[in-house]
Amino acid sequence: MNAYYQFVAEVFFVMFILLTLIGSWLAVNARILMHSVLGLAVSLLGVAGLYFYLGSMFLTMMQILIYMGAVCIVLVFGIMVGYTPNESADKHELSRNMMLGLVTSGVAAFLLIVVAIGKTTWTQAVQTTGNFSIEWLGKSLLLEYCLAFELISVVLLIAIVGAIILARGGREEEI
């Protein structure tokens, strides 16, 4: 019975990895801009699934809430205003030189990775690396890493102020 559950869990793990990979491939390669953004959303969903496997349900939910529910929606909103469904980018034709370059760089990267993998001494992953409850997260963010947390909020504040300045300038020019 346990082996059966193990199998199901592994199938889901592989599915999340495939989601991440396929999504990122789509994000880079799609000819319709909307498909790229949706590919990005799928890829982020896959990453959320990987967080779930690392044992943090909270981080999973935050990934979905922030990256899918906010970032991707703003991107989609921007694209919606500018593009209609029948506009698509031109297909990129690969010339012979580019093909050769791709093959050489691919082989070189593969060899490098093979050498790197051979040289590294691998340590086995720990079963559970710590207690990732919300209490722990809150305490470490607000007590231990307080300065980093506050600095990030300052960055966000600057982004908001910048957005307001950009938007105001645009409106005044029109009038």
């Binding site: 935050m62 979905i64 899918m68 929606i73 909103f77 409850s133 919300i134």
Partner: peptide, 21 residues
């Protein structure tokens, strides 16, 4: 879930996606 409320809100945010698409 011990974060049931966040779960519900996160799932609710996907709903906007479908409307947009």
């Amino acid at each position: 879930l011990n974060i049931g409320l966040i779960y519900i809100i996160a799932m609710g945010s996907i709903n906007v996606f479908s409307i947009l698409i």
